[in-house]
Design a protein around this nucleic acid. Structure first.
Lengths: 130, 130, 130, 130
DNA sequence: GTGGTCTAGACCACT
DNA sequence: GTGGTCTAGACCACG
């Protein structure tokens, strides 16, 4: 799995990791039994502190999404596979609502907002999203 | 102007205020010369600390969006009216990108995401957006 | 609330805190709305690192037992008051089972074990329990 | 001797083995000269790593409880038979103290706790003790 | 004043 | 090799 870390984002690094892993599992990109990159590997790859990664993994273990294999890293819990579309939409919802609220507050024409959104849905991320 | 405050949101209250005021000015909902609700009125209405409101207003004053009228509260600066559509789209952009990235990570069908987004663009906010 | 910290115990300090707070809430010793000692106060009182305390509080917040009052410390969540006896017994159960298993493995006469247990139920803790 | 291994327990597997063997010797269930199941047999039976079993045996050898019989596995040392009741009670003590402390913290009626404890002293272990 | 985040580095425990 | 724990200290954000 490929993590995207934005160190300058207001959302803390450990939380970026937590959320990306959650979504990777929900979407089926990570499956039960798959093992995650080691704490040290992630830390090295993104030039962040191992404890930051460890904190993210610990939270995910706490919510039952990951399991610790003693001496052998973390794996996706058997009990927590991908989520149905309905549930994934529920996870997306607050982000849509948030964006829609901003669009409304800015008085932006809905069709224009939709058009912009469509463009971004197709293309891979560039730059430093909020 | 009607503020929406979500005390449990991860985004700090003073920032919620700052951003909503910025957008209200950008969209023309608030116009040069309009005066804002007093610090105390806002604080009372939303059961938050007056210092928090004050901090938000101070920041907006610092960026030249508001001006302090002695004894008469804050008003929108004469120099800072509504923004052209192009600029408002620029303000919306990171929110769209963020939502789009989440949709992609969740493996949600773009058409489905657009449809949901359209629905929310039309309706007023409900519940507790991110 | 008075925490008992045993730094030399095999159970990590942050976990000792987590468990004692959980039980204090379950027993009604801490009630909804009560605020906890500040991170720094606890750290000072027990000569441990503030981050260790913070970690414990973060976990308790994560499980919904505590709430963060921004700028004003942590309080017991309104939604999480004391537990009925039945639930508290459930929390005690694994400890009883564990002790009973050891007694059985040691071939200790049940009446003798009960007698010893009775003695300890009455007296306050001394020394360094497991 | 029948080992009970709980891989998900917070207490490490090698330590579960060490302690159960210690108690089996102390109680006389294992006697001087008795031989233990081979590392491989234990590892296979409980689906754990042979190195883990080996580590436990090595520790027990280190403390003089077991002896290595070349080509014939480990046996209980001639010098280390069962312990007197007094000593076995000493081994049980921290477990009782620990359980009692939890009961006190939970505000559980001592008589109720004793009653529960009595029940468990009679019955064989079920489920997944701490 | 409150808690949160991150770093750097040490040491431990498990397999 | 793996992750866990703790420390010391810096800096930030919030009220």
């Amino acid at each position: 799995m490929l993590l995207e870390i934005h160190p300058s984002s207001p959302v803390p690094i450990y939380r970026q990791i937590v959320e990306q892993v959650r979504r990777a599992v929900a979407s089926g990109q990570l499956r039960p039994g798959d093992d995650l990159e080691s704490v040290r590997a992630v830390a090295l790859a993104h030039a962040i502190n191992p404890m930051t990664v460890s904190k993210a993994y610990a939270l995910l273990e706490g919510e039952g999404l990951l399991e610790r294999r003693r001496g052998a890293g973390m794996v996706v819990a058997q009990s927590r596979g991908s989520e149905p579309v309905r549930e994934r939409l529920r996870m997306l919802e607050p982000h849509l609502e948030s964006a829609a609220r901003v669009a409304r507050e800015l008085g932006i024409d809905p069709e224009r907002a939709l058009e912009e959104f469509r463009r971004r849905l197709g293309a891979p991320s560039k730059g430093n999203p909020k």
